[in-house]
Design a protein around this nucleic acid. Structure first.
Lengths: 119, 119
DNA sequence: CGGGATCCCATATGATACTG
DNA sequence: CAGTATCATATGGGATCCCG
């Protein structure tokens, strides 16, 4: 077994444990848009509209939801510049840059191995 | 920009493109159980019941759904041994073992950085 | 043992329109 | 510009029971 599957000792860091908070984090990252949003911010801060343009097909409502959840968990930072017209920038935190690494690896895997799949 | 965000040239391998099949694959992996199931099989073939015990909290219906989808996409193989009682084994294909790498990295990241998150 | 069949709900996702 | 408000839908997920 590669990962901890013992279940019983220290479930707190075992994604396979039912009540492990790890699962919440994994669920947060494992949705249709979170991984894409984080990846889009790897190149530097972006504004709401720029993000919406990059994440093709996302609606403003869903984009807001996604960004808010990621912000609550400390993956990204939201900076408001009070001006007219309004200016808001989203950027990765250290934690966000950290998780961006494995997420990028996954995205890259998909793009690279797409032809192996019957899609 | 780290990944391809140009959108216009070869969207076929750009997860950010709306109609890219990459997205379907990413969505397949990005659900509550798929990544866990693949990880559980990294140590070798497992039977249905064993999988259900490892993926704590999953119902038989959802486990079946998860396994079927992964099988359809070529990530794992389902082998039936006609005997009484019935014996069915699930194992990773080459493709499954391949994608298990980035997925493990993600799971490990979560388990490792859990304390950095307010959970 | 390994599911299939059902019923049901929560939530993620979506399309559109509107506003500070 | 950057969202919020609404309404609608899809589907993932869960619980239970049953069957070969």
């Amino acid at each position: 077994m590669s990962t901890t599957c013992s279940s019983g000792a220290h479930d707190k860091h075992d994604v396979y444990a039912a009540q492990c908070p790890c699962r919440d984090v994994l669920d947060l990252l494992a949705n249709k848009w979170a991984a894409l949003a984080i990846g889009a911010l790897e190149g530097g801060p972006l504004r709401f509209g720029e993000l919406q343009r990059r994440l093709q097909g996302i609606s403003p409502k869903v984009l807001t939801q996604t960004l808010r959840r990621l912000e609550e968990h400390g993956f990204l930072h939201r900076e408001v510049y009070p001006a007219v017209p309004l200016h808001v920038e989203y950027s990765l935190t250290d934690l966000g840059r950290s998780v961006a690494v494995p997420l990028s690896a996954l995205r890259t895997w998909v793009e690279t191995n797409l032809d192996q799949l019957g899609v």
